[in-house]
Amino acid sequence: MGVPAVVTALQGRKAIVAKLGMDAHWRGAIVVSNALKEAGMEVVYLGHATAQDLVSAVAQEDPALLGLSTLSGNHLTECEAVMAALRDAGLDDVAVVVGGSIPAQDHDRLKSFGVDQVFGVGSPLTTIVTNIADLIA
């Protein structure tokens, strides 16, 4: 493992990072945002956002990536709502990744909602950055 360096595929690409529901933990979202920034991305950190907030933000910013973070256990309910809202708004071409305290058993459910990738507890930044580079290349 190593610290992620600038990744060509991510250079100048835009990411929106947001917290779901009322989950209180910002540490992971900010650490990952820093890693994406170091890898060359432009990061817009929204803080807490509802599904409708995210639709507006994606419409306005036209990001390559939407990164959602939650550690409170609300991921199934919240991600289902976000993915449905993006689809309804015709914005589901944006790549969506979800990270946080997300048990392995829920990863497939999240993907069935349209989430592209899930990063559970212990995911190295290197893995997150390279997977995102593959996803949006």
Binding site: G21, M22, G73, N74, E78
Partner: peptide, 11 residues
């Protein structure tokens, strides 16, 4: 409250 519902009783 709509944005609270998914977190009720968790954590």
């Amino acid at each position: 409250e709509p944005r609270a519902r998914a977190d009720v009783g968790r954590g």
